[in-house]
Write a protein that binds this DNA or RNA. Sequence first.
DNA 1: ACTTACATACCGACTGGTCGGTATGTAATA
DNA 2: TATTACATACCGACCAGTCGGTATGTAAGT
Lengths: 199, 199
Amino acid sequence: MTERRPSSERRIEILEAALTIFVKKGYSEARMDDIVQEIGLSKGALYHHFQSKRDLFIALIEHWMDQFSPIERGGLMRAKPSREIILHIAKFTAKLFKRNPNWFLVEPEIWAFANRDKEIKEMASHLYGSVLNEFEALIKRGIKFGEFRDVNEGMIAMSIMTSLHGMIWFALFKPNDFSLEEYVDLNMELILDGIAVQD
Amino acid sequence: MTERRPSSERRIEILEAALTIFVKKGYSEARMDDIVQEIGLSKGALYHHFQSKRDLFIALIEHWMDQFSPIERGGLMRAKPSREIILHIAKFTAKLFKRNPNWFLVEPEIWAFANRDKEIKEMASHLYGSVLNEFEALIKRGIKFGEFRDVNEGMIAMSIMTSLHGMIWFALFKPNDFSLEEYVDLNMELILDGIAVQD
DNA sequence: ACTTACATACCGACTGGTCGGTATGTAATA
DNA sequence: TATTACATACCGACCAGTCGGTATGTAAGT
C-alpha cells in the first residue's frame, strides 16, 4: 500500500503525473496505467479521485489554467507604461516555459481535443479570451496615454499571443542555434516598436 | 464493388479522405473504417494500398509536403524586392488556407505525432528547415541590397513562420470579429517594417 | 482470336490483444 | 463504526490488421 494522503494532495500529484504522460504520449496514446505507474498508485485509486479519463483531462486543464492566472495579476506595476508591462509578461512567460515546458506542450493536446469536444473548446476559448482581453486592455491604455499609435488593439493582442505560442513550435523542434529569450525579445520588440508613436 | 481505379489515383483519393478524418477526429481517434467509409471503399482495399495506419499517415505527410512545395518555387519574381516576395508568400499562404483549411489543421496532429515518433519528427524538421531556409535567404538578400537592416536573419525567418502558424490558432478558435487577411497583413507589416532600413 | 497465366484492385467476416472502466475487498483515519 | 484512500482481479467493447476469396484487366503463347 502506498502512503495514504489527503485527496486534495493526491489529486494534484495525479494531475502532475497526468501532465507528464499526456505530453509524452498524447491524450489518446496515454494509458491510465501509465499515469498510475508514474506515481506507484493503483488504478482503483485513480478512479477514486477522477471519474474518467476525460474528467481527468478536464481537471488538468483547470489546474493548468490556474497556473497561468498569475499572468492576469497586475497591481504592482500599474503605474508603468504598457510597453514595459507587456514586455514583463512576455519575459515572465518565457521564464515559466523554461522552468516547465510541459505546461506549454499540453497546449497542442488541448487544441486537438477542443477540435472534437465542445465543452473543452469552450474552456479553451474562455482562457484565450481572457488573455486577449488583458493584452487588449494594455494596448488601449497605451493608445489613450499617447504611448501607442491608434491601432486595432484586438489584432495586436492576437499578434502578441500567437508570438508567444511560437514558443511551442520552438520547444517541439528545438532549433539549437537560437535561444528562446532572443526569440521572445525580438518578437515583442517588433510588435511594440511597430505600434509605438514615432517621434 | 466500387469502380476499379489505378493505384495512383486511388491512393490520392484515400489520402484526401484520410486528411478529412484525421483532422476531424485526430490520428488516434480516427478509425480506418471511417476513412474507408468516407469514399465507399473496403478495408481490404485500403490495406491493399497502404501497409498500416502509420504508413498511411506518413504518406499523408509526404503528400501534404508536396502541396506546399510551390511555395518554394520562385523564378518569376526574382527581380522584385525581398519585402514584396515575402508579402506575396504570406498572402499566398493565407489564400491556400482559406481554400483548404484542413491542410493546415493537420499540423497540430503532425506535431503531436512528431513528439513520439522519431521518423516523423525528422520529416517535419526537414520541411520546416527548408521553409526557414527560404525565408532566411530572402532576408539575407534584402540585407545585402540595403533593403533591410543587419538583423539576425534566422530569427526573423522564425518570426515569419510562427506568425503564419498563428493562422492555425485562428482556424481553431475562430475569433469572429477579425479577418484572417487582416491578421496576416498586420503581422507581416510589423515584421517587415521593423527590419526595414529607416530613411 | 482465344486461352492460359499472372497481376492488380477489391471485398468483408473474423480475431486477438488492448485498455477504459468496474466490482469487491482491505487498511487506515476521524 | 463510518468514511475515505487505496489495492486487485476482472470484464467486455472496440478496432487494427488478417486472410481467403472474387472480379477485372492484360500480355504472352499458339
